[in-house]
Design a protein around this nucleic acid. Structure first.
Length: 866
RNA sequence: GCGGGCGUGGCGGAACUGGUAGACGCGCUGGACUCAAAAUCCAGUUCUGGUGACAGAGUGUCGGUUCGACUCCGACCGCCCGCACCA
């Protein structure tokens, strides 16, 4: 009897319903004596529909969650919605639908889609960050941060996105453009809310050292660079040459090369430096120059190659170590205000940029560091500044010292004289969290003319978003609202103004991982729950969050520790970044993009051609790119699930490509995965059909049965290890090999073989469980069980079956493989050597030469050197 | 410019701490079943020479260490990513 085709879409719905009814994946919170495993994937933004990136992300996490569950861990695998954000407001403007309605409708759609994927989520813990029940706690956290001065307000130059009508954090500006809008950002002076991430700069940096092997290297490197620690010194220079207000009479600089102070030949300050601003008031040429720089300034990295230009202010600075050296002060276009103090001393001998500037403006170039082996009487700086190590020269009391010693000597004297000190500088800026938008978490403060910034009292929380906002004009709807912002000051009762800024949506996602541990707690977090569940054991998500979200969440955890909401420093014990899903692009003759569903492909390889299904006209096959709506190279997961089933989609996602690499979505690949699903289903049917005799105790095993059992248990062992190491593609390959072995065994007969076939089939079904959960559940039932496979413990590999009595090792002559040798595992070196030397191909390869040496590595290899 | 990662068949990719390179899948070729097709199954498939046994070459390039190198070291080439006048 031929087995029926496995109807995945129907069976999958059935099993999803069973899991749902039985609450199979509900986390047992009270079961805290079992070891826990917190598996988390980055929660989605409810943009409308689930895309392939989501399918990949949640499949990768689900394989791990299901595996760990079977391994006996108490698994927390929750899901929620990163639900605040601008697209909801855009939808409100374009389609006249309220952001709340739009968001919750999308959530309903996407929840159904995720359920159709068969993800083992505990849906009872679900929340959306736009639920007041969530953001009330975020407001509490904000107020606690405010108390601890981790949140503060300041006036600063900020990145203004002219399209989104809001400010952006530095991390959200990519190549001078807004991360969502792609519009060039402008600099504006505004008073905004910040989180003091710089307070933890050093901690955040140092903790990265402990992440080796648990976080991707590139993420650690990028965070290190973003924090950008550099160790140097601050130094004050007295200014002469014009009447200056007291505050501007000394110029403070930051340098990492204080050793080269005797080689200084000019000073340079940023066009945005307060001194530049002051001088420009009475100096028309200077104000024109500053204006010029400002216009050039903001855009593009092209300015990195732009010409170094400067304007002499006429002021001179006194070198504190060489008072007779008068250093002209330039305003220079290559000095940026937001690093160090926005001012430097230029030492052209040992800095390439300073050298170019000095040559252009006729400043002297004096070498003060002598390269090892160079002649001090003839050493000169040519086209290239010398930036290496060496011995100090032309530097009075520093002469003869190493660079390192000279730095120490200078730092010491600076401190003694009170005009500077050794100093560490960071590139990291505080996190600007104010957004002039409606659909975000309101910042819970009130501005009072008498009392200043007043926190909203806890009893008045949450500060809820008004439902009746209007979205018909640009700007902040909260600010436009007729009544919302007008409130009484909680302190003095006088009329006051509610803060109308909302928080950056990255705040919402900076602590959600803790909320899942106790999603209904009356406080932001629950100590008992956190003690058990935190930190997240494995976090899986996109590479694009290497610095953004992953850095913010790390900061927030430290902030929450300082405010006693958590007891740990780091939110994620290990992080895995998945590759993206990419697909071919298709373009019609008139340049329009077409979706894969609108295209018919004919031919193979070089003869492969595409045609529009609608018009029949040829279509150009373009490069393989990240799936995106604009390129239309998207495949709807629903279509795949409806046609092949979720298991096929899941299998395609985890087979072939390693999870951290990009994966090319192809119809052929999906069809191939679909065939594998059918193949396994058929194989299990064959096993059931053959009948079995799984007697207890086990029968005597003949050679066929023993071989099959060894293969099955070895595979189990390897698959387990490969799942744990997120090498799912290798695990899948090994499962395929086992199906071949099982298939071959069905053709044979032998002592105990029926028993072994039955055992192997059960192991196989259990092994596919994490990846193909519906099929596995279905096969488990066909094997005669009325329990759920999802409730079965992961099988144990029998240690005795993992080692072979007889093994095959390669035999080389001079490093070249000539033959192989089958020997007992326990064979001695001498036995192996004797057997190897007797092999005919070995004798032939030696061609009569005497054997000089024989290397025998038991159980591995023999190499005959002749 | 600085930093990180990666280069293996026609393709995706395997290869544990240096020990039989190319597992597994896709594709391709041939065959079986079929009136035919689909589906399925079997065999072959790194390259070169040879009917064949077999021989030689081979993991971006060049060199080194080693009995033995995809793996370790040095130099170079190419691709991808991040930061970018950072003082």
């Amino acid at each position: 009897m031929a087995s029926e085709r496995y109807n995945a879409p129907v069976r999958e719905k059935h099993w999803q319903q069973v899991w749902d009814e039985r609450g199979t994946f509900r986390t047992q919170d009270q079961n805290r004596r079992r070891p826990k495993r917190y598996q988390l994937e980055m929660f989605p933004y409810p943009s409308g529909r689930v895309h392939m990136g989501h399918v990949r992300n949640y499949t990768l996490g689900d394989v791990m969650a299901r595996y760990m569950r079977a391994k006996g861990f108490n698994v927390l695998h929750p899901m929620g919605w990163d639900a605040f954000g601008l697209p909801a407001e855009n939808a409100a403007m374009e389609r006249k639908i309220h952001p709340r309605k739009w968001t919750y409708e999308n959530i309903d759609t996407m929840r159904a889609q995720l359920k159709a994927m068969g993800v083992s989520i505990d849906w009872t813990r679900e929340f959306a960050t736009c639920d007041p029940a969530y953001y009330v706690h975020q407001q509490r956290l904000f107020l606690d941060f405010l108390k601890k001065k981790l949140a503060y307000r300041k006036t600063a130059k900020v990145n203004w996105d002219p399209v989104e009508h809001t400010v952006l954090a530095n991390e959200q500006v990519i190549d001078g453009r807004g991360w969502r809008s792609d519009a060039p950002v402008e600099q504006r002076d505004l008073t905004q809310w910040f989180f003091k991430i710089t307070a933890f700069a050093d901690e955040l940096l140092q903790a990265l050292d402990g992440f080796a092997g648990k976080w991707p290297d590139f993420v650690c490197t990028q965070q290190r660079n973003w924090i950008g620690r550099s160790s140097g010194a601050s130094m004050q220079f007295a200014l002469e040459g014009a009447k200056l207000p007291k505050k501007l009479q000394t110029l403070e600089i930051f340098t990492t090369r204080h050793d080269t102070i005797f080689g200084a030949s000019f000073m340079a300050i940023s066009p945005e430096h307060p001194l530049s601003t002051h001088l420009a008031k009475r100096h028309r040429e200077l104000s024109a120059f500053i204006e010029d720089c400002r216009r050039m300034g903001t855009s593009e990295e092209a300015l990195a190659r732009a010409e170094k230009r400067g304007l002499d202010t006429g002021l001179v600075a006194i070198n504190p170590f060489k008072p007779d050296a008068k250093l002209p002060v330039f305003v220079a276009n290559f000095i940026v205000m937001d690093y160090g103090t926005g001012a430097i001393f230029g030492c052209p001998g040992h800095d390439q940029r300073d050298l170019e500037f000095a040559r252009k403006y006729g400043r002297p170039v004096v070498p003060v560091v002598l390269p090892p082996g160079a002649d001090p009487t003839t050493f000169k700086i040519g086209e290239e500044a010398y930036v290496g190590d060496g011995t100090m020269i032309n530097s009075e009391f520093l002469d003869g010292l190493t660079v390192e010693a000279a730095k120490e000597a200078i730092a010491r004297r600076l401190e003694e004289r009170g005009i500077g000190a050794g100093k560490v500088n960071y590139r990291l800026r505080d996190w600007l969290i104010s957004r002039q938008r409606y659909w975000g978490c309101p910042i819970p403060v009130i501005h009072c003319a008498t009392d200043g910034v007043v926190p909203v009292p806890d009893a008045d929380l949450p500060v809820k978003l008004p439902d009746d906002a209007t979205f018909d004009r640009p700007g902040n709807p909260l600010d436009h609202h007729p009544t919302w912002k007008h409130v009484a000051c909680p302190k003095c009762g006088k009329p006051a103004r509610r803060e109308t800024d909302t928080m950056d949506t990255f705040v919402d996602s900076a602590w959600y991982q803790f909320r899942y541990c106790a999603p209904n707690a009356a406080t932001p977090t629950d100590k008992t729950a956190l003690k058990y569940w935190a930190p997240v054991d494995q976090y899986i998500g996109g590479k694009e969050h290497a610095v953004l979200h992953l850095l913010y969440a790390r900061f927030f955890t430290r902030g929450m520790k300082a405010t006693k909401h958590v007891a740990i420093d780091e939110p994620f014990a290990s992080v895995f970044t998945q590759g993206i899903v990419i697909h071919e692009t298709y373009r019609s003759e008139n340049g329009d993009w077409l979706t894969p569903a609108e295209v018919r492909i004919e031919g193979e390889g070089a003869a492969r051609k595409a045609f529009s299904i609608a018009t029949g006209r040829p279509v150009e096959i373009g490069p393989v790119e990240k799936m995106s709506k604009s390129r239309k190279n998207v495949v709807d997961p629903d279509d795949i699930i409806a046609h092949y089933g979720a298991d096929t989609a899941r299998l395609f996602i985890v087979s072939d490509s390693p999870p951290d690499r990009d994966i090319i979505w192809t119809e052929a690949g999906v069809a191939g995965a679909g065939r594998q699903v059918q193949r396994i289903s058929r194989l299990i049917d064959q096993v059931v059909e053959r009948g079995y005799a799984k007697t207890d105790p086990a029968p005597a095993f003949g050679p066929e049965a023993s071989l099959l059992r060894r293969t099955a248990h070895k595979t189990l062992n390897n698959v387990s290890q490969n799942i744990e190491g997120l090498r799912y593609n290798v695990a899948v390959a090994q499962i395929y090999e086992l199906t071949h072995a099982l298939s071959a065994a069905l053709e044979k007969a032998g002592d105990g073989l029926d028993w072994a076939i039955r055992e192997t089939a059960e192991l196989l079904v259990q092994m596919i469980g994490p990846m193909l959960p519906h099929l596995a559940e279905d096969c488990w039932e066909r094997l005669g069980y009325n329990t759920l496979l999802s409730d079965q413990p992961w099988p144990h590999a029998e240690a005795a079956l993992l080692v072979d009595d007889v093994i095959t090792i390669a035999v080389q002559v001079n490093g070249k493989r000539r033959d192989e040798l089958t020997v007992a595992r326990t064979a001695s070196k001498d036995e192996i050597e004797a057997a190897a030397l007797g092999l005919e191909p070995v004798v032939r390869a030696l061609a009569g030469r005497p054997v000089k040496k024989v290397i025998v590595v038991p159980q591995r290899i023999v190499n005959v050197v002749g």
